[in-house]
Amino acid sequence: MASDGVVVEIGKVTGSVGTTVEIPVYFRGVPSKGIANCDFVFRYDPNVLEIIGIDPGDIIVDPNPTKSFDTAIYPDRKIIVFLFAEDSGTGAYAITKDGVFAKIRATVKSSAPGYITFDEVGGFADNDLVEQKVSFIDGGVNVGNATPTKGATPTNTATPTK
Score class of each variant (00 low, 15 high):
36 A>D: 01
4 D>H: 04
119 D>R: 02
88 S>R: 07
22 E>H: 05
34 G>I: 03
133 K>T: 08
8 V>H: 00
83 L>Y: 00
139 G>D: 06
70 D>K: 01
40 F>I: 02
46 P>E: 04
156 N>T: 10
110 S>E: 08
60 I>S: 10
142 N>H: 10
119 D>V: 04
122 G>N: 00
29 G>Q: 13
93 Y>N: 10
100 V>T: 09
4 D>F: 14
75 P>H: 03
98 D>E: 10
27 F>A: 06
152 A>D: 09
118 F>V: 03
90 T>D: 13
144 G>P: 12
74 Y>E: 00
117 T>N: 11
64 N>P: 11
115 Y>Q: 09
72 A>Y: 00
54 I>M: 03
116 I>N: 15
52 I>A: 08
112 A>V: 08
26 Y>S: 12
77 R>L: 02
102 A>P: 00
119 D>A: 12
22 E>Q: 11
83 L>S: 01
85 A>P: 00
145 N>W: 12
35 I>R: 00
137 I>H: 12
51 I>W: 04
4 D>E: 03
87 D>V: 15
9 E>T: 07
10 I>S: 05
91 G>F: 05
116 I>G: 03
91 G>W: 01
34 G>A: 06
50 E>F: 09
65 P>F: 13
76 D>F: 02
131 E>D: 08
26 Y>K: 04
32 S>C: 01
46 P>L: 06
96 T>C: 04
157 T>S: 11
156 N>A: 12
144 G>M: 10
56 P>L: 11
52 I>E: 12
61 V>R: 05
7 V>Y: 05
108 V>I: 10
97 K>Y: 14
150 K>P: 12
62 D>H: 15
31 P>T: 04
161 T>I: 10
96 T>I: 10
27 F>G: 10
137 I>A: 14
93 Y>H: 14
9 E>R: 08
117 T>F: 05
37 N>P: 00
155 T>L: 10
16 S>A: 12
159 T>C: 13
71 T>L: 05
123 G>E: 00
114 G>I: 05
88 S>N: 07
131 E>F: 01
20 T>I: 14
37 N>S: 12
150 K>N: 11
35 I>V: 04
89 G>W: 15
126 D>S: 04
106 A>K: 05
115 Y>M: 03
83 L>D: 02
72 A>E: 00
54 I>Y: 02
134 V>E: 02
25 V>Q: 03
